[in-house]
Write a protein that binds this DNA or RNA. Structure first.
Length: 274
DNA sequence: AACGCGCCCTGTCCGC
DNA sequence: TGCGGACAGGGCGCGT
């Protein structure tokens, strides 16, 4: 997806457009994007007539809180897009899976070519439960150096894989995991429990730095990501390692390497990252 | 019980 | 030009 910075960008874009609006109805074109606990009828019953009271982010999830209680949670998977129909680009969305009719003649569109994305409806209680399954928010104060270090103690996974596990830290995906590891000087294959206190301290810093910079640039468009206006993000030119195999390291000039960890690409500078 | 793997799905790109 | 294979911001369920 859409990782944390992309979800955050979408949330900020959607908030002024959605707050206070009422959902009139929901049309589901591809039921396979609905979570296992819901179906088109249940979704419609839960949200039709409801007022949008808050637009928030949790990890990589975009949350729409309804005044009547239910929480709509969107996970965009790899190719999911969430935009309003008044965006000029909305007309070009060829894979709309779910559309929400609003009370101002516009629609909220959930478009997803690969349909790895999901939309779930939760009761407040169920959402409270679900959110405890997600890890710490990396940009919040609670993400302290001590916390990250303690979390890494018990895992022998390569740190790149470790960072992708949403139950530990929420919102990191493959792009920003690789970028933060580069800046911290840590190899993606390094076992989590071998990181020294100094390594986790730096990694916490670089994670926050990279995520904040990417939010500032409105996210990374590697291929498919679009914001709520349908526009690409601006962070791609600033990537230092991701998808740069064979190209020179921006720090030392050594060729960036690609490795495969758990069937997913990892990129690193063999000179700068130990 | 933590971890890795295969799979879900469509589109694009690259080499032959 | 056509075709097969590899690969893609994610996450779930399974077996070990």
């Amino acid at each position: 997806m859409p990782e944390l910075p992309e979800a955050e960008t979408i949330v900020r874009d959607l908030r002024p457009r959605l707050l206070g609006r009422r959902i009139l109805s929901v049309a589901v074109r591809h039921p396979d994007v609905l979570g296992r606990t819901t179906d088109p009828e249940r979704l419609h019953d839960a949200v039709a007539g409801a007022t949008l009271a808050a637009v928030e982010r949790r990890g990589k999830n975009v949350l729409l809180r309804l005044a009547e209680g239910p929480v709509l949670a969107f996970n965009l998977g790899m190719t999911g897009r969430l935009l309003t129909s008044d965006a000029p680009a909305a007309a070009g969305m060829a894979h709309v899976t779910v559309r929400f009719q609003l009370d101002n003649e516009t629609e909220l569109l959930f478009d997803d070519v690969r349909r790895f994305g999901r939309v779930d409806v939760y009761t407040p209680g169920d959402w409270a439960l679900r959110t405890t399954e997600l890890g710490v928010e990396p940009l919040e104060d609670e993400f302290t150096p001590e916390r990250l270090h303690a979390l890494t103690r018990t895992s022998r996974s390569p740190i790149r894989n470790w960072l992708l596990d949403q139950r530990r830290v929420a919102g990191i995906g493959n792009i920003y995991a690789n970028e933060a590891l580069f800046r911290a000087g840590v190899r993606p294959s390094r076992r989590a429990n071998t990181l020294r206190r100094e390594d986790t301290r730096r990694l916490r810093e670089t994670l926050r730095e990279v995520l904040a910079e990417a939010i500032g640039a409105r996210g990374t468009t590697f291929r498919d990501y679009r914001d709520a206006q349908g526009d690409p993000g601006g962070y791609e030119p600033r990537l230092r390692v991701y998808d740069r195999a064979g190209q020179p390291c921006t720090t030392c000039g050594t060729a960036i390497k690609r490795a495969v960890l758990s069937n997913r690409s990892a990129f690193y500078c063999p000179q700068c990252q130990r």
